[in-house]
Design a protein around this nucleic acid. Sequence first.
DNA 1: CTTGACACCTAAATCGATTTAGTTTATACT
DNA 2: AGTATAAACTAAATCGATTTAGGTGTCAAG
Lengths: 339, 339
Amino acid sequence: MPVTLKDIARRVGKSVPTVSRALGNHADISPETRAEVQRVARELGYEPSAIALNLRRRRAGAVSLISPAHAQVRFSDPFFAEFLNGVVEAVAEQHIDLLVTAGAEEDVEALYLKQIRSRRTDGFIVVRTQRNDSRIHLLREQGAPFVAYGRTEENNDFCFVDEDGAAGIALVVDHLASLGHRRIAYISEPLFLTKAYHRMTGFRQGLERNRLPFHPELFVETHFRQRSGRQAAAYLLDLPQPPTAIVAANDLLALGAMHEAQSRGLTVGRDVSITGFDDIPLTEYVHPALTTVHLPAQEFGRRVAQMLLKLIDKAPLEERQFIYQPSLVVRGSSGPAPA
Amino acid sequence: MPVTLKDIARRVGKSVPTVSRALGNHADISPETRAEVQRVARELGYEPSAIALNLRRRRAGAVSLISPAHAQVRFSDPFFAEFLNGVVEAVAEQHIDLLVTAGAEEDVEALYLKQIRSRRTDGFIVVRTQRNDSRIHLLREQGAPFVAYGRTEENNDFCFVDEDGAAGIALVVDHLASLGHRRIAYISEPLFLTKAYHRMTGFRQGLERNRLPFHPELFVETHFRQRSGRQAAAYLLDLPQPPTAIVAANDLLALGAMHEAQSRGLTVGRDVSITGFDDIPLTEYVHPALTTVHLPAQEFGRRVAQMLLKLIDKAPLEERQFIYQPSLVVRGSSGPAPA
DNA sequence: CTTGACACCTAAATCGATTTAGTTTATACT
DNA sequence: AGTATAAACTAAATCGATTTAGGTGTCAAG
């Protein structure tokens, strides 16, 4: 049903290659033929077959984003949703397709391998990097182009965009310390994630820098989302000596913690201070608004995608690695330590 | 670099078709040849070229979801993010790729047309349907398989999954009326969206059913997100006779409205009741938790995707249209009307 | 000794494009 | 008139698979 070069060729009474070259504005086609061919092509609504083109060019015309399965977060994470917005926009501008796939926990590697070998994609966007990331080992080994959002803990000689999470959290600790808090708790995401690890490091650095002691009982490693934040806060607030401030590793955890505090009748920002990280669109609209660390999620997505497209085209990259210095956003959820 | 049939053929000293048939377990290949071919294929890590296969089969092996550009919402809308989760999972199960594309406002139609003609995709998932939806006109006219999330206002003889938004909002109105509210405001999404239109209708039906008057000044049509909800609430609460309850057409609007009310020192659920719609994961974790209407967003995504895949395979569809009856979730943000 | 059947494999065509290497025709020049 | 040259096209190969039709060799039956 769709229109092919053959159809046009038949209509104009010329061969298929002639039609192809006429459409490609090659020099060895007479102006009349060219005009005629282009007229007919327009008339029939011809659009070259993406698949045939890709076969010929040995490219897929698409890049791949495989959402890791752990913790069932996928796109529910608002930070990640914003990131995706950026990716989608950047690839659309270059007329490249974005393949979004879900990876089952066990066989992510198999999935990557399959996509590489079946040449379904020209490159990968890797998200939620782990300190020791098998996906990155694999991609490097296979020589597949990729850009990561986040680093690993080892050999980081690949393209990535990342934030300086340690610095970000340290800013939070400085802020709380300056408000007089001395018992500061930390709710961490799973530490196998590089991001979580960095932020945790920043917490400890922040404590040291402000000459505050690290209390192991005030440190909780949990999952990603509100429910976990709530549970962690419940544990912390039940301690004989509860913290006066709770630093959450991301905004969702912070919202969960706020919910727990509020359902205990505490006023967040007065009885207890709670902070987040990521500055997802919601933080401004909860009550009290959340003190957090701002990250331009959408810009990260754009950047990663643009880097990848350049990498694929073997275009010169002005920078292979980018580390964003986040800034603190003080809102109502943090206040002076209670006396 | 990647392994092709030719490579295997060379290795086993057989022709390419023989290798193909051996891998396909055809009957006219001797057991020894078959075993040998399969051994070599495994050894070399052979995976058929998705592109070559697709060319041959005249299929794209992918379905397309084009995110409409209006209001810059894309994936930031948590409901939509959940929906996407469902879609991604369902297509991954069938080993189909999901193409996610951003459509510029002006030329969405051009984008659809291009994808159809270039045979980049086997079918479309249409989201955020409009009462008069040019995308649906186009897809129908072009005979491209598609499933919509949401209906239109006209000829709905296509496959869709939708919720009964009118019934959902009417439940909310019943609830508020039973709490004694008589001045109930409504914050609507843009009414060119079918969904928004249905919900609005439900609001008016709900009022009638409870013998409550419709006050035009208590009706605000605005955009999708918190900011709009906040502005609308500001307007409503500034009225000489402010409403005692505000029904928002979605949860984000409701959260924005709550924020405005709270920053005026009002206690939501006591001084003013506020309700949402969609039951996004956050609603449970704000304070007070939001009274809303539950929709299984992820299941909708799955359902739409599964329908589309069946439609593409021309498999029998047990139902071409599905309308979900939503249910009310009462939480803390709604309470008795103040005296 | 011929014929037929079967088992096993390969040549050629196909999907829809592009590119390389010719080929034809007309014109220009000697 | 004969040949060089340019202009405008086409045949054939290619990308990587599958399918259809055909071919070869072995063995059994007549």
